[in-house]
Nucleic acid binder design. Structure first.
Lengths: 338, 338
DNA sequence: CATATTCCAGAGAGCGCTCTCAACCGATTC
DNA sequence: GAATCGGTTGAGAGCGCTCTCTGGAATATG
């Protein structure tokens, strides 16, 4: 096996070949301005000739920066590995943003608690990353706060459930849900139920809150079933709802996946959509366009959520002060299911 | 802002507090056996008291290891960010395996070519990672070969399209497809079409090859439409197929997502499944159980594919010789669509 | 009891890089 | 012509860690 580590050219080699000092070579490599053009060129061609690539470890050792950001995801998050591509979207956004500034993305999964939790904490507080983005937290996870307290720049994706000063980016889930439900009401629906998301996640909680608010706005009774953002849970919840109130004429599902499950359950129960029951989802995933019928849904900019989280954490790492809350806009996309 | 980097305890501090030399402290931290128990304990409690975490950069600098592995994914891969969770499954597998040995996962996306390609190459050959797992390559991507030649341990996820000595892990796509088609034939189907995957990816190519082989085995004519593994393309391909041969009575789709699209197209064309047309998919994604009707499909162990890739690359990084090809078993899961 | 052997801890040399500080040099100013 | 000055370059000190090498204590051997 080739040991790539051993025979790699060092700055010293570059300097020698260019006939300058290591310090000057370093300046050129790092783009310092105060280097004479012809020396600069000499160094650059030495870099080229030798195929020099800076040793990140050595650099980190002195700069105390690692140029990498951790993306921490709760491994058990049903959304992460279920059939909805929320996870992928976030990763994509974060990745695009980091790539633009030549930072690396270190991905870490954590279990609900215990050893893997500690591992992430040790790793992040150990100065291996310049910051961390934490997403898809369940319950009152203490990790964000702990890292933050340890001096690691942290940004969360989604509102935290505990009182905390850790900044986050999210959409206004409550408001978006409210809008969705009002759309149902405005189009003449009278008995609007909801399939709520998991009640240990802010997205689940806030969307339910929005639904409740909209119902109260118009003096109506709530009809709630709780799912976990997956298709199956959506189908199950829909059946329950139908059992609870056979006359319901609309459903607001807190995710597209659950909405699709609901669509299926409705079909199996012999209900026509939207004639008998209108359905609104949340997310605007790719597949929402292809359900039968195509799904009316609340679009949230998932990739942008990732991008913004990355941007914020980079700013923090750069010593900037950032807004504690950043909300991105949503949009109600009307299709044939309402 | 708290600068976490500056006030972190060093090994020197630990040594001092424990009243030993730095070398001994290092031995304890790295689990060397030749340290007297009571000294060992003293060091450990100093570590505990100070909250010492080794500085990875310093360690890497001398060991020439980074304890991290790059997972490189083609960003444009339709599978990566489409509605099928292949990507997530691979990540999950790799992540689980790396976590077990306390290595980090560095995720890198690459565009079809150009700057991001170079970036990955520079990064990986620059000794920032101990190895790389490359997956979802399109066409004859030179990246795996280039990295490998540069001395970076590389394992691919999926057969390479070019002649190369880079090892890979995969399922036997051709054989699996053949089995699936034979299942269709065995259950009395006569006109079996296929919705092939993209022909610039080995999974797409090999599954089509398997289909063709099965058809030839039984002296039948092939009927092919090509998709790109997505739902939409599956629906589109199905319509074409129906146009080409309205009497077809079975379809083998090279992915579950395409199979679902096909199911939808068939329904819209007024065909009953499986009465008029049988459908077989590939992957056995979660949603395959919930399609209407539930999908017969070829199960491939996606998470294990990720796991094995990680295991192989770790072995390579450890200097071991590994098998150039590792094929994991598939299984035909029979449900109601056939 | 002297010598050989084993075992364990410490000293010290770097790993490759950045960055401060001093040195230098040609050019400007008095 | 001497003093000053902006602009470059080089020397060298570390960043925190691992690991080899050496010395000394403890144990075994003749």
């Amino acid at each position: 096996m080739v040991m790539s580590g051993r025979d790699r050219p060092t700055l010293e080699n570059v300097a020698q070949r260019a006939g300058v000092s290591r310090a000057t070579a370093s300046r050129v490599v790092n783009g310092s301005t105060s280097v004479a053009p012809q020396i600069r060129d000499k160094v650059l061609s030495a870099v080229e000739a030798l195929g020099y690539v800076p040793n990140q470890a050595a650099r980190s050792l002195v700069t105390q920066r690692t140029d990498s950001i951790a993306l921490v995801a709760s491994e058990t998050a049903s959304r992460v590995f279920s059939d909805d591509p929320f996870f992928s979207g976030i990763i994509r956004g974060v990745s695009l943003e980091l790539e633009a500034v030549d930072k690396q993305l270190v991905l870490m999964m954590v279990g609900p608690s215990g050893p893997s939790h500690d591992r992430v904490e040790r790793y992040a507080t150990g100065g291996h990353v310049d910051g961390a983005i934490i997403f898809s937290m369940h319950g009152a996870d203490p990790l964000p706060e702990r890292l933050s307290r340890a001096g690691v720049p942290v940004v969360c994706n989604g509102r935290l459930l505990i009182q905390s000063s850790v900044p986050y980016v999210d959409v206004d889930n409550e408001d978006a849900a409210r809008t969705a439900v009002h759309h149902l009401l405005d189009t003449g629906r009278r008995r609007v139920a909801t399939i709520a998301g998991p009640q240990d996640m802010s997205a689940g909680i806030d969307r339910l809150k929005g639904y409740r608010a909209a119902m109260q706005d118009t003096g109506r009774r709530s009809l709630v079933a709780v799912g976990d953002f997956t298709r199956q849970s959506g189908a199950l919840a829909m059946s329950q709802l139908l059992g609870d109130d056979p006359d319901l004429d609309a459903v607001f599902a807190a995710s597209d996946a659950m909405a699709e499950g609901a669509l299926r359950a409705l079909r199996q129960a012999g209900r026509r959509v939207p004639d008998d029951v209108a359905v609104v989802g949340f997310d605007d995933m790719d597949f929402a366009r292809d359900t039968e019928p195509p799904l009316t849904t609340v679009r949230q900019p998932i990739t942008d959520l990732g991008r913004m989280a990355a941007r914020q954490v980079l700013r923090m790492a750069g010593g900037e002060q950032i807004e504690p809350v950043l909300l991105l806009p949503t949009e109600l996309v009307k299709r044939e299911s309402t």
